[in-house]
Amino acid sequence: MAASPDKLADGLLTGDRRSIAQALSLVESRGEGFRDLLRVASSRTGHASRVGVTGAPGVGKSTLISALTFAAREQGLKVAVLAVDPTSPYTGGALLGDRVRMGEHSGDDGVFVRSMASRGAQGGLGAAAGDVLDVLDAAGFDLLLVETVGAGQVDVDVAEEAETTLVLFAPGAGDTVQAMKSGLMEVADFWVVNKSDDPQAEGVRADIISALSLHDPPDDLDSRVVLVSALSKAGVPELLAGVVARSERLEDSGDREKARRRRLHRRIVSAGGELLAQRCSAADGLVDEVVSGRLTVHDAAEALLGKPAGDGERAS
């Protein structure tokens, strides 16, 4: 049914939209040839800025992404959006509804929107998110906007995949102590307070600044805790300009390269985890060995992985 990985790779590099869409599916479902496709795509990555948008459900992530897309198009940037929604742990199904707020970009060839289900991954993104972003990067988009699932406090994976992370807040969701908690607050490069027309929005911004100032405040706090209205787009072009300026600074200082290496390290480990999970189906046979007392659980685990050479009876 689908085209071969080679053909998809060719189409992808010329920006053919159907090839991009099919390549994304191949990579996401780990279909036959996905590694070959990624080999081609990976050699063409590094051009796009990757910006993550995260925050609790309902704070306005999709609407902000739509507004950022609009602002980026005004500047002639080509934009791809990856919007992640949760997969049900019970049925494996998912309702992907982020396109509802992105209709205004339909018909614009410089915008590509793809919805993705988290498929059991914890942390707010799907397991294949990094690979999917590589494909979009190779397809020639300038700006990749990644929307996480409605995030809880420790869903911080987006900060591992994106070079700039926007954490979005909305009025009415707690006091200064919430802003002092660990997790999401710590991964932000920009703290964005949405719904700026709400009378409480300014107070939320003040709370965030106050919490961040308690200890070793980040630089430029004033310009990094920002008020926007995603719906009316007020403040959004300024936010985009701040993000772009930050990317340029990172590039110049060499920090962008360092961050990229950290990201790749993490992805190698995570790809290893995936292979391990596949191999674990072989654990069934080892259960008998453990039941009969020939192996302990830990022996069986080592047998599963193939014992590393010279790492036998190590004293602990």
Partner: peptide, 19 residues
């Protein structure tokens, strides 16, 4: 369809055939 284990992309109202 979600509960039947599928991934459902819901676009909402007022879509043109092109969209």
């Amino acid at each position: 369809l979600r509960d039947a284990g599928m991934e459902v992309i819901y676009t909402g109202l007022h879509q043109t055939p092109e969209m």
